[in-house]
Write a protein that binds this DNA or RNA. Structure first.
Lengths: 236, 236
DNA sequence: CAATAAAGAGAGAACGTTCTCTCTCATTTA
DNA sequence: TAAATGAGAGAGAACGTTCTCTCTTTATTG
């Protein structure tokens, strides 16, 4: 009954510790074990994402996630130490994906074109469903969930702030460059412009524009007009 | 053991049912009993609001709410049948208060002035704390919580849709009137303008502008520029 | 190569806690 | 006195997490 339970010790009979370490390192990076671990983590993350979209961070139970992943609790807890950890990982990934849309900013010469494109890309991403079944606007749902969680979860708040800082920085950089190129009125307050455009981006996600029956394409001239309004104010 | 549990029926020994009904009606509206009931309900609602802001709808427990209200569960459940009911009531109230800001719309002659004022009022309300202690931006926090809940709670979703429909209607009415007065370019898509401005409003709440160190007053010219951009697009 | 040891991976029951909500009974009010 | 009100224990379910054990894969040894 107890004769097989406890005796679990690492023997470590090797004479060369460095060799062992190196071997372990290689195995962790490229081995079948490591690849399998990554695959399982992704399986859990996908399942959890679906559950969180369906029931919210607090509303979804670990059992629900386990069922969705086709996995036992014991197995799941081998890959993530807590529900918190899963929430944090998903929040970080989702925010990062949003932030990455800004990468295209530097590709465009015209700053108004660039803003317009970023806005459209954002809306498109948010009306998408990255992970299989479920509502079409999964990404937007998860977005709101992350925002709500950030209100009272310090870790998630830190994650949000990190990516938002990066976004602000990138936007500000692009605007400054455009200003130097003479595309923007010299008196425009760029910090204010960044904050305004970022807020508008989030609002449009929340209200879930496309879900209201408005086609994404209709937003093109709107984004353009807004970009012009914010970057080159008519008065003052 | 069971002899006292269920038999709780209104005896109604009166010969005149109409009199009783009338009496009851009057008592409910003006009696001390009714006033006390309302006071207790408000006490619970205030406590619950604080808890929900602090911990979220799902995160806050009924015990937490009872403690905050200085009340036992037995007492609380006399006034609200479930946690759900409290959530719904608070959601409805909060959304209604937001919608009521639009009442001023009709007071102003100039449509751009009106939009600007509504935007500023909205931001001011959201940076406020209606119910005593807690963070300064309680209203915004609650707003996000309601939005997240609406994503998966049908009742709350219905409440949101109701008030948003009213808001859209009111905005559209004001825009139409302004168009007839010649304030708005005849080719402007008013539905799109309504949706855009509503989305921007929500976004600015979410990003919590004032909390980012930007004074509310700085937003005045921004709102003005945006209103002009949305209502009278430069091209097309 | 066969035998053996160690570790990895996973299943599922069970843990202690916390949840929402109910029941009983005492107190207050009209 | 009869109804309204409230306190508080606690029922019963669900929660996140851990524990024990089995089975598979990998590494080591003779």
């Amino acid at each position: 009954m107890v004769d097989q339970a406890l005796p679990r010790q690492a023997p470590n009979v090797s004479a060369n510790a460095a060799d062992d370490e190196h071997h372990c390192f290689v195995a962790k990076l490229f081995g079948k074990r490591a690849r399998n671990r990554e695959a399982q983590e992704e399986r859990i993350l996908n399942a959890a994402t679906n559950c969180f979209i369906r029931s919210g961070f607090r509303g979804a139970s670990m059992n629900e996630i386990c069922s969705e992943a086709g996995m036992s609790p014991g197995a799941l807890y081998r890959y993530f130490p807590s529900k918190e950890a899963i929430i944090e990982k998903i929040s970080a990934t989702h925010r990062q994906e949003s932030a990455e849309i800004l990468e295209r900013m530097s590709q465009s010469r015209n700053i108004v074109d660039a803003i317009t494109q970023v806005g459209l890309d954002h809306v498109k991403k948010m009306s998408m469903n990255d992970s299989g079944p479920g509502p079409r606007d999964s990404s937007a749902r998860l977005f709101v969930e992350v925002r709500a969680e950030a209100m009272r979860n310090e870790s998630v708040a830190a994650i949000c702030e990190l990516h938002e800082g990066l976004m602000r920085e990138k936007l500000l950089g692009a605007f400054t460059a455009a200003k130097e190129r003479g595309e923007i009125d010299p008196v425009t307050d760029l910090d204010l412009a960044v904050a305004t455009l970022a807020a508008m981006g989030e609002g449009i996600i929340m209200r879930n524009f496309p879900a209201q029956g408005l086609p994404v394409e209709a937003l093109e001239p709107v984004f353009r007009a807004l970009a012009i309004a914010v970057l080159r104010p008519a008065n003052k």
